[in-house]
Design a protein around this nucleic acid. Structure first.
Length: 805
RNA sequence: GCCCGGGUGGUGGAAUUGGUAGACACGACGGACUUAAAAUCCGUUGACUUUUAGUCAUGGGGGUUCAAGUCCCCCCCCGGGCACCA
């Protein structure tokens, strides 16, 4: 090879690697297992997005680097093909998903993924829509149910009118459906939930020690949303008692009214007959509001008096109970004590409805009046009987809660914002929920031996918006017999959220050969948890949270001996195109196939990694891929220069320095995902070779191996051209610390911190040896005329700063 | 409002622990080669000035330090997470 022709080379090595099964890992015999996972895509018909490739290539570089470092790397791939994205696409084209999905998968794999040069082990592919797989997805459901981690409940749930299904709260973004951006409404329905809240504490606490990108952890922390406080029992005069949740029990003496959420079940019980019509009207008015309207910013407070009064347990004061929609049923206990003196929302409400405001925490500020503004800062308790003088937020909280707790009227609690995961979907394209309803036996999970519950091939699979799945239109599907009593029974007709499919796929990869278990205990012990997971941060509170929860759940059920699925998670950045987010309307969508066909996968990979910091994202510019191809042309020309290369290791200190510092820097940069600087260092090495006409076998062998993780096809070809075999069975080059030591170093000479000159001096000189040289240097001496040196700073082998006056 | 990231030439972006700001590229300009163009190669390229040198420059304003893109305080802007969450 003299001229670099990427297409020929890439075709050649793709076939060779496939034939030699280069990328297939011996899972049983592996000595140093490294599980390198990337987020599997959903096979849309648009094909692979450049964002997918950016993610995959960055992950593949880690896989290839670890292989060169001597690890047995397992790098599998699969397809997340159940779910609304696939179904909606099929609907749009008037086709059936069962017909389109296999075609899309085929196309993804054969014409796209295989052309990128990812070292994927295709002998362990996973397809979530195959019954070999979703049988075990259903097994997860049954297992969770049997262990009391799944339950069915009727209540208000998030409903997307466009997708015609319910959604989990994680799938509602700013009040809109995460798939179609339609405004989500509330609907009262019986749905299946997983108890994600059961592990809220563990999921939150473990974040502190997880080796994950910080921004992913922060997103999860915010989502789980811990707040510490107390539950306090109030009693309605002549009625029941109820609990409220507060983070400020220290302000109990300032509670001048109570508020129930309109959905609170006690509202009907306590409302007096005189107030009943008003309360009823208010509740109806609220129920007509969309969630987004109800929680809109700056919305004026509304509410009505119930006629009932409660007794404040700290002082026996009678306080009126109101109903208002600024209190949400879904958080805490759905009822609050209102302290208008020290809470801005309560203050606003009290002003509007002319309710009393009492100061119980002193601001200590002259002229501050809680009648005009709530005080939320620190301070000492006042108007609080025996607790006056205590530091409110610390001593006050402790003292008041403890005193009530002794009488059984309060307890310290922690509230989490996290909701249980609603997993029912009234759609067709998903794994049917494996539950049977029997009049006699109630809810009966489908026995393991009867799994999978196969998804029937429905001609008409359109969602109808009735709140029931299309499967409810197929009597052949839902009519069945009870596994327990043998009597007539019906199946659950909803399918499960496809985030359940993706919550466990990485356990399946090593165990795809087993059809009698979801994952093999031995292989799981050897390969999991995943060593490195690379993916997008948009899944922070979706897939990444669900899969952490499921791992804990499977551990709780006794199927896993670890509690976190990924040892390390790295969130990559996002690519924009010419400074703007990619979108069809802007017309700046990047078609990866075009660049791969015209410049080769290696140039494309290299450019994707070079255009910006991998963890931050980058700006795709058309000219960049071409420039990268030109660089690889220069690299090929340098390695395959005419004439016999020098077989001896280089002796020139400068060349040795450049070579060994490049090895060191590229290795360090790969480890910290700084691919753009790693590639820049490789460019510098090539520039050095070209400029100095260096043609050396030892350098070439090093250069090719440094290049290999980034441009695998070209590296393999060059490796062969310089007389070696199988670059990925070789090793990562080692650097020689000795070569990094320089005999002569460039000193920066500063006067008063300003750069005034540079001097090349022998390394390792003492300040005493340097001083006369510096003072004698003409560039320096002219700055010293008529001045006194009052201070001298020396940084060894680097810098001298003279402070003069 | 609270919590995370960011803000550096014409552009994408570099800059381990405070120690030469602008690595590596793109683009632009000049030159070589060519009938010409493309490609390739060689230069120049932060701004300003009185140009063998100097002054100013990392969103803005203060500060610490011999020395600040980097540390501290205040403010502005962009991206992301949470948000009537009690």
């Amino acid at each position: 090879m003299k001229k670099y022709d990427p297409i020929t080379i890439e075709n050649k090595w793709r076939e060779r690697w496939q034939k030699d099964q280069t990328d297939q890992t011996d899972l049983v015999g592996a000595k140093r297992p490294f599980y390198n996972l990337m987020m599997f895509p959903y096979p849309s018909a648009e094909g692979l997005h450049v964002g997918n490739l950016f993610a995959f290539v960055g992950s593949d570089i880690q896989g290839r680097y670890h292989r060169l470092k001597g690890y047995d790397v397992f790098e599998p791939m699969g397809f997340d093909a159940f779910g609304m994205h696939s179904e909606n696409f099929a609907l749009k084209h008037g086709r059936h998903p069962a017909e389109l999905v296999p075609k899309n998968i085929e196309r993804f794999r054969e014409t796209q993924l295989k052309k990128v040069g990812l070292m994927l082990d295709w002998s362990h592919q996973v397809d979530t829509t195959s019954s070999d797989y979703y049988r075990w997805t259903q097994w997860m459901f049954v297992t969770l149910y049997k262990n009391n981690l799944a339950y069915r409940k009727t209540g208000p749930v998030n409903w997307c009118p466009s997708c015609k299904t319910v959604l989990a709260s994680e799938q509602v973004i700013d009040g809109e459906c995460e798939r179609c951006q339609t405004l989500v409404t509330k609907k009262e329905m019986a749905q299946w939930f997983f108890k994600t809240t059961a592990f809220a504490k563990e999921l939150l606490e473990e974040l502190d020690v997880l080796d994950w990108s910080e921004r992913t952890k922060v997103a999860q922390r915010n989502w789980i949303g811990k707040s510490e406080g107390a539950e306090v029992i109030f009693e309605v005069i002549g009625g029941p008692s109820f609990e409220i949740f507060t983070t400020r029990p220290d302000t109990l003496f300032g509670a001048t009214y109570m508020v129930f959420s309109p959905e609170h079940p006690l509202v009907d019980v306590i409302t007096t007959p005189e107030q009943a019509p008003k309360v009823k009207a208010y509740r109806e008015e609220v129920s007509r509001l969309s969630e987004i309207d109800r929680q809109a910013e700056n919305r004026e407070k509304t509410g009505v008096f119930t006629g009932a009064k409660a007794i404040n347990p700290v002082n026996g004061a009678l306080v009126p109970i109101w109903v208002a929609d600024y209190v949400l049923m879904g958080y805490g206990t759905g009822a609050i004590m209102a302290v208008p003196g020290h809470d801005t929302r309560d203050h606003e409400f009290a002003k509007k409805f002319d309710l009393p405001i009492i100061e119980v925490v002193s601001s200590g500020q002259e002229g501050f009046d809680v009648q005009s503004q709530a005080y939320v800062g620190d301070g000492k308790l006042v108007n609080s009987g025996p607790f006056n003088g205590l530091e409110a937020k610390t001593e006050g909280i402790k003292a008041i809660t403890s005193s009530l707790a002794q009488k059984g009227q309060a307890r310290f609690t922690i509230n989490y914002r996290l909701r249980d995961w609603c997993v029912s979907r009234q759609r067709y394209w998903g794994p049917p929920i494996p539950i049977i309803y029997c009049d006699k036996c109630g809810i009966v999970p489908v026995p393991e031996k009867d799994l999978p519950v196969k998804l029937p091939n429905l001609e008409d699979y359109r969602p109808d918006g009735t709140g029931r799945s299309p499967l409810a239109r197929d009597p052949d599907f839902y009519n069945t017999t009870c596994p327990e009593c043998g009597g007539a029974a019906v199946r659950e007709t909803d399918v499960s959220d496809n985030f359940l499919c993706s919550a466990w796929y990485f356990y399946r990869y090593p165990s795809t050969n087993f059809d009698d278990r979801p994952f093999d205990p031995e292989l799981t012990k050897k390969w999991l948890p995943v060593d490195l997971y690379v993916g997008g941060n948009e899944h922070a509170v979706l897939h990444l949270l669900y899969s952490r929860w499921l791992c804990r759940a499977l551990n709780y059920c006794g199927y896993l001996d670890f509690t976190e699925p990924y040892k390390r998670f790295v969130a990559h950045g996002m690519i924009v195109s010419n400074g703007a987010k990619m979108s069809k309307s802007r017309g700046n969508i990047i078609n990866p196939d075009y660049y791969i066909t015209n410049f080769g996968a290696d140039s494309f990979r290299m450019y994707l990694m070079f255009m910006g910091a991998y963890l931050e994202g980058g700006d795709f510019r058309d000219s960049g891929v071409k420039a990268m191809k030109a660089f690889l042309d220069r690299l090929v020309a340098a390695v395959l220069k005419d004439g016999e290369p020098d077989q001896n290791a280089p002796t020139d200190p400068e060349t040795r320095y450049v070579l060994h510092s490049t090895i060191k820097a590229v290795g360090q940069d790969i480890v910290r995902f700084s691919y753009n600087t790693a590639i820049a260092r490789i460019m510098e090495l090539v520039n050095h070779l070209t400029k100095n006409q260096i043609h050396n076998q030892v350098i070439n062998e090093t250069l090719v191996r440094l290049l290999a993780p980034f441009a695998p096809h070209l590296a393999e070809e060059l490796w062969e051209s310089i007389g070696r075999e199988k670059v990925f069975s070789s090793s990562w080059p080692e650097y020689d610390e000795e070569a990094l030591r320089r005999n002569e170093v460039e000193y920066v000479i500063q006067i008063n911190g300003k750069l005034r000159g540079k001097l090349n001096l022998a390394s390792g000189l003492t300040p005493e040896q340097i001083e006369p040289i510096v003072l004698a240097s003409p560039t320096v001496s002219k700055w010293l005329e008529g001045k006194n040196v009052i201070k001298k700073i020396y940084v060894p082998d680097k810098l001298v700063n003279l402070v003069v006056k």
